[in-house]
């Protein structure tokens, strides 16, 4: 199966199955699932933001169950140390040598729950792993397994006792995904699924079956990397990002890493749309999620209760889509 079109078709079949499996547990939020899959395909990391009780952890667990591989979860707390994340060297008296004990980051899918509750030092340790895809312990570097994706969650409501991620570190996340309350019918399905035949209200992903392997994901990432981007589309993406630097409502616009992230995510979105080329619609589709955490609103806009999504929507309406 060396034909790229066939490869793409097969990948899309698997992705459709994975999406269906995830949505069996994470009901009624297909857009969120798509964004998570886009990030996985693009080899990026996701910052999930939503009020408690919307199934952020469930989403990541379901995804881990659908794509196989190793799943780890770290609950970030104020006393969490960097070595609790990355691992450490431990002296063994029997052998008289040090043994490296790898931390939870050595997983294919890492859930960093409430990342803003840990101090900056611990956050930086994780973000460094996300950037470098390797961990150095006692001078020895060890790569994290491929694929490696971190899904960090944070609560937008409770800010007391938190350490907000600085803009430079937010930049490391490919997408920032916002989870909102589900629709009425979706919520009914969730309640029914959780309460029927189950004891307690524990999140249940037993019904999710593994339809992809980590190797499949790595192969899919290769396909995404080969997706072509026409210069006109590239120009469109860059114009959008540059517009964030000129908009009067934005104090700090996205940098070139924003353009890169936009194209990476758009490539994955194109593959998810069963295409091996990126269209302006792919750019539009991922632009908000790829840029909302890379811009800082002007104080007057924050006072007026504008959100980054409002400003980005305005920018997307202003920037001309290519037509020739």
């Amino acid at each position: 199966m060396s034909d790229p079109t066939e490869q793409l078709g097969a990948l899309n079949d698997r992705l459709a199955q994975a999406r269906a499996q995830i949505e069996r547990a994470f009901i009624g939020q297909s857009g969120i699932v798509d964004e998570i899959i886009v990030s996985l395909l693009a080899g990026g990391h996701v910052l999930l933001e939503g009020v408690p009780g919307l199934g952020k952890t469930l989403l990541v667990k379901a995804m881990a169950a659908a794509i196989g591989g190793k799943f780890s979860r770290i609950q970030f707390t104020p006393d969490l140390m960097p070595s609790d994340v990355t691992g450490h060297a431990m002296y063994e008296a029997q052998t008289g040598s040090f043994r490296v004990r790898k931390g939870p980051v050595f997983a294919n899918l890492l859930l960093a729950d409430e990342i803003n509750r840990a101090p900056a030092k611990t956050q930086a340790a994780l973000l460094e792993v996300m950037q470098e895809n390797q961990v150095t312990i006692e001078g020895q570097s060890a790569p994290v397994p491929r694929p490696f994706m971190t899904v960090a969650t944070q609560n937008p409501v409770e800010h007391e006792g938190t350490y907000p991620l600085p803009e430079a570190q937010l930049d490391r996340f490919l997408l920032k995904v916002l989870i909102d309350y589900p629709e009425q019918t979706a919520e009914q399905q969730i309640v029914s699924a959780v309460t029927t035949g189950h004891v307690g209200d524990a999140l249940n992903v037993e019904d999710v079956t593994e339809v992809m392997s980590p190797e499949h994901v790595v192969a899919a990432q290769q396909i995404v990397a080969r997706t072509s981007v026409d210069p006109a589309v590239l120009d469109y993406a860059v114009r959008i990002v540059r517009e964030t630097r000129q908009s009067s409502g934005i104090r700090m616009g996205a940098g070139p890493r924003g353009s890169i992230a936009l194209i990476r995510a758009a490539r994955a979105a194109a593959v998810l749309g069963n295409r091996d080329f990126v269209t302006p619609d792919d750019i539009r589709k991922v632009a908000t999620a790829a840029l909302r955490h890379r811009i800082a609103l002007a104080p007057e806009m924050e006072i007026e209760a504008y959100r980054p999504d409002d400003i980005l929507r305005d920018i997307l309406e202003r920037v001309n889509a290519p037509r020739q």
Partner: peptide
């Protein structure tokens, strides 16, 4: 058509 409509829009 919406402002700055892409092909899909």
């Amino acid at each position: 058509l919406p402002r700055s409509a892409t092909e899909g829009e």
